[in-house]
Design a protein around this nucleic acid. Structure first.
Length: 271
DNA sequence: CTGAAGACCTGCCTGC
DNA sequence: TGCAGGCAGGTCTTCA
């Protein structure tokens, strides 16, 4: 379940449960590849290294050590947990010196595990073309937002999901933010008024913040790895609610495909 | 260049 | 009950 809030939830969960700067004893790969081949070098360079920090960039998790960064992307179904038990689709074990075991599980294997040198992160293939973090409001400014949208004729939903525009917004939060802003997902970005765009930017920030907060409350279950269960789903206004009542006007939520993705909206509340 | 569509995988739900 | 079909939170590549 990884959009930005979910990745951030996993990150803070790991940080909390792993303690200060845990030391990696060894890494065991249970398969050779996920979406891409996993560099075997991982098992060598991280042995006996201290994890200095666990950070997030966009939807990537970064385990930083002295010389290298272990890069993890969760794809659609990836998750990390701290566990002694094995589960189906566990692909990577990271054994820590204090006896804990960090496990990567990913049924669909759309995730990625890779490494880069500490000074090479910004040129890393997946990351170098990324837009700003949404909470970096200096870079992700109103002006940046409106200027960009003015140049795009694609549906606004597709635009806000573009990682080179702003990172971390996936299908769920795109739908939710558009509902809150009262904008139909298929409206061409360059046809929206400045005011509407500014509202949308604000709603993106708000929905992401709220989701991160909701994630925080379930962190205590983290170790049990029951992470499949979405904690924020109870607050969804439109996502996954096709044919159900709009929470505002009681009319039926619709679902259209945009760029192949389900896009939920209320025909009455979103114009 | 832009944007749409297909591909990558497994699991789960629906409907026949 | 069994099985085919469709769909799923994300990217990357290919095609028009």
């Amino acid at each position: 379940m990884p959009e930005l809030p979910e990745v951030e939830t996993i990150r803070t969960g790991l940080e909390k449960h792993l303690g200060e700067q845990p030391v990696i004893r060894s890494i065991k790969l249970l398969r050779k590849s996920l979406r891409y081949p996993i560099p075997i070098k991982i098992t060598k360079v991280f042995a006996n290294e201290k994890i200095l920090s666990i950070e997030r960039r966009a939807k990537f998790l970064l385990f930083k050590t002295k010389d290298y960064i272990l890069i993890s992307h969760l794809g659609m179904t990836g998750t990390w947990r701290i566990s002694g038990d094995d589960k189906k689709h566990d692909h990577i074990h990271i054994f820590l010196q204090d006896g804990k075991r960090l496990v990567y599980n990913d049924p669909r294997r759309f995730g990625l595990l890779d490494l880069v040198g500490c000074d090479q992160l910004d040129t890393y293939k997946g990351i170098k073309n990324f837009g700003p973090e949404p909470f970096d409001t200096k870079k992700f400014s109103k002006k940046y937002f409106t200027d960009y949208c003015k140049t795009k004729s694609a549906p606004i939903k597709n635009v806000i999901m573009k990682q080179e525009f702003v990172v971390g917004v996936g299908n769920i939060y795109a739908c939710e933010a558009l509902f809150n802003a009262g904008i139909r997902p298929n409206r061409p970005a360059n046809k929206l008024s400045l005011d509407k765009l500014i509202v949308l930017r604000k709603e993106i920030l708000r929905v992401l913040r709220k989701a991160i907060q909701a994630g925080g409350s379930t962190i205590s279950d983290f170790k049990q790895a029951s992470g499949e269960e979405g904690y924020f789903q109870n607050s969804f206004q439109v996502y996954g609610r096709e044919k159900e009542e709009c929470t505002r006007c009681k009319r039926k939520i619709k679902n259209i495909k945009l760029a192949g993705r389900s896009s939920f909206y209320c025909y009455n509340c979103q114009k």
